[in-house]
Design a protein around this nucleic acid. Structure first.
Lengths: 143, 143
DNA sequence: GTATATGCAAAAAGTTTGCACAGTA
DNA sequence: TACTGTGCAAACTTTTTGCATATAC
């Protein structure tokens, strides 16, 4: 599941931006690359410490914040209250979320690249990613 | 800013679903309808208590959760860590968020209705809303 | 060598829960 | 009246901060 090329390229982005590559930061990146997805912050802390004992809680939080600022990580609430984190997917996979049971299904179609280009131009933003989530009720909960 | 028709129709949705209309629930709904947008949970607590003293913190949390489950409220992290809440807009207004300074700009264009219809059909979901956020860097932070 | 980042522990902030009481339908 | 929902306070969880030390470059 761990894809080294991915980890390396993410690390490279950090390095290029002038950030030091530390054990803690590498551990967070590797953990996110390895775990399926949608971890809450405490989940990430736990997973990181299991994989790389000795990394402090605070560093995980600081690293998540850094990775978000740099755009390597995205957070969302998946229709629930707790924020979850995951590596920004370069292959699109957005979510359909059931508001009742919080089941989520991924889908790949994305109608946004064109819109993104147009808006970026109009607003002067340099856009580098997006998040799309559809909410509703899944077949099970409808029954 | 407070639009009574809106509050009434939201209240009606709750009532129709079998939930009781209490002072606390009404206060949360009115607060969300009144405040511009993007309040964190503690923000909502504060605003509700200012507008309707006597409402307990716990009830605000319970009501937010209820409103989300019913689909009247949406939450998102706006690219940051803290979840924010707002009434589900029926007029679309999605967001462009700066990852650096968290400035957000709204836009109205939405490429999703068609996609939503198609996916709902394919997955058997009954979809009732969506969230679209674009991330990047704003002109100020680019400079 | 030096500035940046870390780990720890403590403080702060945010959220949930149990329960007796109140208010809606 | 019956039962859902409330407010409170306490417990619990999550996040942030300060600081001495370690480490990447």
């Amino acid at each position: 599941m761990l894809r080294c090329e991915d980890v390396d390229s993410l690390v490279a982005v950090l390095r290029r931006s002038g950030y030091k590559i530390t054990q803690a930061r590498r551990a967070v990146i590797e953990t996110l690359a390895e775990e399926a997805s949608h971890l809450t912050a405490p989940d990430v802390v736990e997973a990181v410490q299991k994989r790389t004992p000795g990394v402090g809680r605070a560093s995980v939080y600081r690293t998540l914040e850094l990775l978000m600022r740099v755009g390597l990580v995205q957070s969302s609430t998946l229709g629930g209250a707790a924020a979850t984190y995951r590596l920004t997917p370069d292959r699109h996979h957005h979510h359909v979320v059931c508001l009742e049971c919080h089941k989520t299904v991924e889908f790949e179609e994305c109608a946004l690249p064109e819109l993104e280009r147009r808006l970026g131009e109009r607003l002067g933003f340099e856009l580098e990613g997006h998040l799309v989530e559809l909410y509703g009720r899944c077949p099970d909960c409808l029954a």
